[in-house]
């Protein structure tokens, strides 16, 4: 297994990616594109997604992780991330993945908003899509992030004195990242319960505990076709907890579950 970092896309708006390639390049069956969350959730998830890529590559699967434009190590500075631009970046990254691997089958593994964005693209042409703790409703997500940010300003575990001077940041920032009105409005347009077809022939929902949060989504995706599978994970990710906004995500059981999907072991 080898990790190869590189840039791709157009000069001036280059995307940073890391290709985790299997030791044996014979008959590459599967290639997986990983779609990051946005904002602070991407930072929390970074190491776990890196470990996931290494594990899949060790099991014979090509994996491409990348940073959306203006995030991570990619060109530009777009704060939280521009949802419209992220859709375009997922398409670019998918083309790159196909070009560099020649794999027979492609899959997308998206976490949080990364899953939601990928699932909303109708022409990705992936054979499998794994939605890990997807954001079900963009408007609700923005609302919850805004409330978390507001509570953070009053959190005396973080600030010696509540930051009343920064109350105006609530409409422009989300937990450390610039998130202007246009991004919020765009995010409000993403609703997984509004999907009218499965985004890939095979769709797997990984839902961390508590799983009942995903009951409606699972029922909806299940109603869209026979290719849907729901895997409940016992791990708690604390996505909505103020106390955990800077905690690195613990991989828990997802590494083994993802490997099982691609190897059958």
């Amino acid at each position: 297994m080898q990790n190869s970092p590189f840039y791709f896309g157009e000069s001036g708006s280059a995307l940073f990616g890391i290709h985790s390639r299997p030791a044996s390049t014979l008959d590459p069956s599967w290639a997986v594109l990983v779609c990051n969350p946005l904002g602070q959730e991407a930072i929390r998830a970074h190491r776990t997604l890196s470990l996931l890529a290494s594990r899949l590559a060790a099991a014979g699967v090509h994996v491409l992780r990348f940073d959306y434009l203006g995030t991570g190590d990619s060109d530009g500075d777009l704060g939280f991330g521009d949802p419209g631009r992220c859709l375009e970046d997922i398409r670019i990254a998918m083309r790159e993945l196909r070009d560099i691997t020649g794999a027979r089958h492609t899959a997308v593994l998206g976490l949080r908003l990364g899953a939601t964005l990928a699932a909303s693209i109708t022409d990705l042409d992936a054979d499998r899509m794994i939605l890990w703790d997807p954001v079900i409703d963009g408007a609700d997500y923005v609302h919850r992030l805004t409330r978390l940010h507001e509570r953070m300003l009053h959190d005396t575990e973080r600030y010696a004195v509540p930051r009343l001077d920064a109350a105006d940041s609530t409409s422009r920032e989300c937990l450390g990242f610039a998130c202007p009105g246009e991004y919020r409005k765009a995010l409000g347009g993403f609703r997984l319960l509004g999907l009218d077809a499965l985004p890939a022939p095979e769709v797997v929902l990984f839902s961390s505990s508590p799983s009942d949060h995903y009951a409606d989504l699972a029922a909806h995706l299940g109603s869209l076709g026979p290719g849907f599978l729901h895997r409940r994970l016992p791990d708690e990710m604390h996505w909505d907890s103020l106390q955990h906004i800077e905690d690195a995500l613990q991989p828990g059981t997802v590494l083994a579950e993802a490997e099982r999907l691609f190897t059958g072991r």
Binding site: R47, G72, D73, D77
Partner: peptide, 17 residues
């Protein structure tokens, strides 16, 4: 801490540039 090279809230990337 455990934050990767881009730094807390991407501060290292922005400041490096």
């Amino acid at each position: 801490g455990l934050v990767h090279r881009i730094g807390p809230y991407r501060m290292h990337t922005v400041l490096a540039r």
